[in-house]
Amino acid sequence: MSSVGGATLAHLPFGDIVIYITPFTLTLFLLALVFTILVIASRPERQLDITFGADRIITKETGLTEMRFRRFMAIACGLASMGAMLTGDVFDFALFTSLVGITNVGIVAAVKSRHVQNAAFQYGLVAMAGTVPLFGAAAMVAATTGTLSMLELAKEATSVVPFAVKAFLVLGVMGEGMAPFYAAKAEMFRAPGAPYVIMCSLSSLLIFLRVIEVVLTV
């Protein structure tokens, strides 16, 4: 199917990898851009914690080096999601997605809480396992169709990529971003530093939205 995300507005060729812009990808790209700008512009909040057994509230402070590192990771994550939104090549998409996965780990791994680190590690394991279906599916797309370019794949009237391969690709993206929504992400999100943590959640949602377009297109 060729017009999943609306009519193509522009092409930006990088050799064999052609970036194409449709209203859908443009919307997602702009959202990633806006949030990345927010990350650059905002300071982290000071999270309040209620102490049990005593009538008092403590604020968690974020150290400067930790904050800088996490901001860097969040910006990288924003750039990675922007790339994943626009790229027009299946393998390139897989690479951008795994970049999103690793930056997500980075955003929370720097937090000095054992609990958060544990969650980040579990999420990292899933993200790493996610590269297997991701790259595997991309390679199978290349083998069964002879091309990796989504523009070429979209030209086919009926989809030539086998269904199971598409499912494999979606599973990989879920591993990189979506699956951890249940538990690990919830634990990760207890970490202070809202602007950065939001980037985790945003990038996961964005890559998931994009993969829907990808599997419907190819």
Binding site: F14, G15, D16, I17, F69, F72, M73, A76, A80, G83, T87, D89, F91, D92, L95, F96, S98, L99, I102, T103, V105, G106, A109, A110
Partner: peptide, 19 residues
């Protein structure tokens, strides 16, 4: 021809090593 792949890939190495 597929240079963008390598850009992303070396960025992954960069980020992972940064962590």
């Amino acid at each position: 021809t597929r240079g963008l792949d390598t850009v992303v890939e070396s960025t992954i190495l960069f980020i992972a090593f940064g962590i």
